[in-house]
């Protein structure tokens, strides 16, 4: 398992390209997430794109790479449900649901119906001059987290099989 899910070792080209491409994908995903309100994009697309980046890492570098190299720890039981990275993915989508639902409840607290979204404009911001912030961004962030957490959970659990 630790050598990667493929029986053959991936080529140097594949490894190098992955190293270059993954950060680009992640930045693109964040851009799509943030611009979603006015241009094509949004939480769901950004989430799926982020998952794709992680899936590439899983394929090229193996399932344990993320834990050993990024989190600097030894994966214990591979993908046991109570421990390891699957649990953290679970926390991600749980937090996403909480953010999305909590944002809706915040509207209730302010006296609007559940999940009402508002927009605020700020004048005189440097560079932008006029800057728009929609409360829907919070909701989109929740969607993003749920999609990333859930898809990665599925990917990790199924990948470990």
């Amino acid at each position: 398992m630790s050598g990667g899910s493929l029986d053959r070792e991936p080529t140097v080209i594949a490894r190098t390209v992955t190293r270059l491409v993954v950060p680009v994908i992640l930045v693109t995903a964040v851009a799509l997430l943030l611009q979603g309100h006015n241009l094509p994009g949004g939480g769901f697309i950004a989430g799926v794109l982020t998952t794709t980046a992680f899936a590439l890492i899983y394929i090229i570098y193996g399932l344990d790479y993320l834990e050993t190299e990024l989190l600097h720890r030894r994966p214990t039981v591979p993908f046991g449900t109570g421990t390891g990275i699957v649990r953290e993915y679970g926390n991600v989508f749980a937090a996403g649901l909480a953010v999305a639902g909590g944002g809706g409840l915040a509207a209730v607290a302010l006296g609007f119906p559940f999940l009402t979204q508002g927009v605020a404009f700020f004048e005189g911001v440097p560079v932008y001059h006029e800057f728009e912030i929609a409360s829907a961004v919070v909701f989109d962030l929740g969607v993003y987290a749920v999609v990333v957490g859930a898809l990665l959970t599925i990917l990790a659990v199924v990948g470990a099989e």
Binding site: H37, L39, G41, G42, V119, A120, F121, A136, F139
Partner: peptide
């Protein structure tokens, strides 16, 4: 400067997803 009665976004699809139909989402 602040309003809640319109989506305030150029991307209608996204505004539907996160605002008008946020409950579905």
């Amino acid at each position: 400067p602040v309003f809640v009665d319109a989506g305030g976004g150029g991307n209608i699809v996204n505004v539907i997803l996160v605002d008008f139909r946020a409950f579905d989402t």
